[in-house]
Design a binder for these strands. Structure first.
Lengths: 333, 333
DNA sequence: ACCGTACTCTGGAACGTTCCAGGACCCACC
DNA sequence: GGTGGGTCCTGGAACGTTCCAGAGTACGGT
């Protein structure tokens, strides 16, 4: 075997159809000004040869790649949700996505560099950890849209994190809870705002003296650890707001294993409304980030800037909303 | 703003350094046959202009992309593990990865098509659902390596699924279990083999009459549903082997919520050893697929075929191994 | 002084597209 | 029967690289 045929080119198709390559190019791009008959003939020739346009040559010539680079953490449930939505948002705008994953062995710098070589027209970065100055420098080279993190020097699309936690606390307070704790996300993007939102909401409800923040993180394990700490306290909280869904599943798991009934004894609220939260057996009450809106905005902003329309860097803040599922209920006593 | 400068090209660098573009090309590629002095001068000129080679043009001309396309299901925990490992395997061999995700709204055909346009030199497909004939047709156009599924007409790297389940059953039988059930993966790649392995191993241990297969799937929800069915039975099994880790976490969750103690009352064994299984609070006993070996093999096979070395399509079967964690223990009574 | 060889370097032709200017043809109109 | 304006199609020049053949220089050996 190994007789992998050389890929057919425009010229091959043109020869077979008996027309010029320019004409084939027109047909392949679906431009108008081609008679139905020839269009048909060219299409057939292309199909017969199994012709596929070479995007590299195409992009090289046209100077445009219609490619949006996406840097994301492949192990973050919420990033996965965002990528999924970005795919459709990009397609709707006539752009393609070039994914570049951040893994434990492939850092953000490497992920970004590979996209730069691919001549993406803009970069969409999901919750990047790159320091602000470096991001700003990057943004001078090509449009950069930062999703799910607040940072100066680039365009930002993010959720009103503080407001989200206010909604969570409102909900719990409305159910009669007073000892409401918060398991935070440490230095993760958005964590500071969520912490602040929690604190402010607690004060607004006159629960200032019950403010209780436990160090958590963004993984299941960190949630589990935090939950164990809580369980060992003399007066454990009756409700917990957690940095994100992933961390919350860790919390839930520890609670359930300890025989704590959720929500009868303890209510739990997550954040993100990632696909984890929606799993039937988890059914987590959570603060839903508006993924469709955020991704649409991100793509729109990127394109705006590609087209040279945007002037100053802007931050768009999208309002999240509470999704009540099965992990919250009225306070016990 | 919006004065995004036009990217400098070889010609620009050449002009600034007062040499030909061929020479600059040599320097940029690190070829030898350039005097240290000029090399230095060219480097400086390139840095001063912030020159970055255009991979599109580079690849167009050289005819090679050094790009391996990867089609994967972004929501599958195990695929995520594979992609992570593929990144390093590819890098070690001097190749880059082009990711194309399958999402609920973006099917395999679409994901594959986009990679074809990028002129990847080979395709690595993770547990593809594409019918065998279509895969075979694809394989005539470019090298295709199928990972984690058995199929004719393409190169295959897969785990000895049946053997994995034998190990699981051996382990459980060794712990004294007799009523060992299997929650299967339906039509998922590998499911049939695992089912068979389970059945054969049960017979080998003289437990033929205890063979008990429940319909499951590859998601948490499907695992949860299956577990509920099991719980409602008059004589529930004392041990369960599950199609994969993801499904097993759903099973675990239902068991724990029902107050069933794991492993005291029921032992559970997963499959994959994905990152889910390793989470401290889950700590799932599982059959580990040998991800480093599989990904290295996949990349090696792809390259072999790119270089025109491989002749017939081959299937490499990688042996999995049992990882004992906290969800299995001696039988209760 | 001449040749050969090794080392640097250069010019120009690809690669597979898109883009632009324009050619060929047809039809209608005065 | 020329002119005008469509519509459909073509040729060739880009795009930014790499690759190839060969030009120019310097140096050692005879």
């Amino acid at each position: 075997m190994a007789n992998r045929t050389v890929r057919p080119t425009l010229t091959d198709v043109a020869a077979r159809a008996g027309v010029s390559k320019s004409l084939v190019s027109l047909v392949m791009r679906g431009e108008q000004g081609v008679s139905p008959a020839t269009r048909q003939r060219v299409r057939e020739a292309a199909d017969a040869l199994g012709y596929q346009p070479d995007s590299r040559a195409r992009l090289l010539r046209s100077g445009r790649s219609r490619l949006l680079g996406v840097v994301f953490g492949i192990e973050h449930a919420f990033h996965v949700d965002l990528v999924t939505a970005l795919y459709t948002a990009a397609r709707d705008s006539g752009y393609e996505l070039a994914l570049s994953a951040v893994t434990p062995e492939r850092d953000e710098t490497e992920a970004t560099a590979s996209l730069l070589q691919d001549r993406c027209e803009a970069l969409i970065m999901l919750g990047p950890r790159t320091p602000a100055p470096a991001l700003a420098r990057l943004a001078t080279r090509l449009p950069v849209v930062v999703l799910a993190r607040d940072v100066r020097g680039a365009d930002v699309i993010r959720t009103a994190d503080a407001d989200g936690l206010r909604q969570a606390v409102d909900h719990l307070a409305g159910l009669g809870h007073r000892r409401i704790a918060h398991i935070d996300g440490g230095r993760a993007p958005g964590a500071a705002d969520r912490r602040r939102g929690y604190r402010e909401a607690m004060h607004a409800h006159g629960l200032g003296r019950h403010v209780h923040i436990i160090a958590g993180g963004l993984t299941e394990d960190e949630g589990a650890t935090a939950a164990r700490t809580l369980l060992h306290q003399s007066r454990p909280p009756t409700a917990i707001t957690v940095f994100n869904d992933r961390c919350a599943t860790g919390v839930l798991d520890v609670l359930v294993r300890a025989g704590t009934r959720v929500p009868e004894q303890v209510s739990v609220v997550g954040f993100d409304d990632s696909h984890l939260a929606r799993l039937a057996h988890i059914s987590l009450t959570t603060i839903a980030q508006d993924v469709p809106t955020m991704t649409r905005l991100a793509v729109a902003r990127a394109i705006e800037r590609i087209d040279g329309l945007a002037v100053a860097h802007r931050a768009s803040v999208v309002t999240p909303h509470l999704v009540i599922r099965s992990t919250t209920g009225p306070v016990a006593d």
